[in-house]
Nucleic acid binder design. Structure first.
Lengths: 158, 158
DNA sequence: AGTGAAATCAGGCCAAT
DNA sequence: ATTGGCCTGATTTCACT
């Protein structure tokens, strides 16, 4: 991770092409990538290493369907923090990301403080997350839970 | 994609180990995966192919920081559909996933119909998405937009 | 920064179990 | 369904530009 600013400076068209390709297929082989963007495989390797180092690529992940790993119930939980405990938000959010059901933590503006995308084994599991792991702590002023019927990724993000 | 039911039937401990490993590092080589879960590389290859075929693995993607591709403004937009046009939801949602700014579409229960996780180039771009691409269509009854200050993935999703 | 050659290593088909 | 053998092709380093 360098101190390069997080913007387009330092990224050329080839870098952006690589990001677009890897966003669609994160397992595309290095030499296929190299051919697609028109550079040598060895160059491609150093470019991708750099993209990871500067943080443009934060990681590579399999998109696993939660239903297949025993978590068919998905929900979005809006969480409001007690105003007295605002300064503890940072550490608390860290702990949230460690709950097995939690897939994403979004810190947001508005009447709530963050949104949690969770995948639970069943309704009891979901209730346990909400009442024990969230409302059970003294930091939380309230939650609102919305069931997720379907979740799909956007297509072209470049 | 087979007609196997979307649950734990047909997935053993090795499959779940593979899913867990690939969720953390989607580019881990087949060889390394095989060694970690204790099977032969050729067996590992067929297992992973099967996990993709049945839909347990929906894809492999690089996690690209939106700020680095010129989209530093992230927001969650809650969208409510006009009741007259409920039957058009499906096709409309398809089109949403095609908007370049849209990263995720969540179909949810509650007072809104879906949540859009978007990444925009600037506030004008965000406004354009909301007013032109969403409110501009006759299908939408209303939207609510929340800025995303930070987004982090959950750690252990297995 | 980009490259080509060379060595090492991984991917992927097959026949056997 | 799992495996080891085998060949093909990919990854990675390095000297050079």
């Amino acid at each position: 991770m360098t101190d390069v600013p997080k913007d387009l400076r330092g990224l050329d068209d080839i870098d952006r092409d690589l990001l677009a390709l890897l966003q669609v297929d994160g397992r595309m082989p290095n030499n296929a990538l190299a051919e697609r963007v028109g550079i040598a495989p060895s160059t491609c390797l150093t470019r991708i290493r750099r993209l990871r180092e500067i943080g443009a690529v934060r990681g590579f992940h399999a998109d696993v369907d939660p239903a297949w790993i025993g978590r068919p119930i998905q929900a979005m939980i809006a969480v409001r923090i007690r105003s007295e405990s605002r300064d503890a938000i940072g550490r608390f959010a860290e702990s949230l990301a460690g709950i097995p059901a939690v897939r994403d933590v979004y810190f947001i503006s508005g009447s709530h403080d963050f949104l949690l995308h969770v995948a639970a084994a069943d309704v009891d599991d979901l209730r346990e997350v909400i009442t024990e792991r969230l409302s059970g702590t003294r930091l939380i002023a309230g939650t609102e839970t919305y069931l997720i019927f379907e979740h799909r990724r956007g297509a072209g993000n470049i």
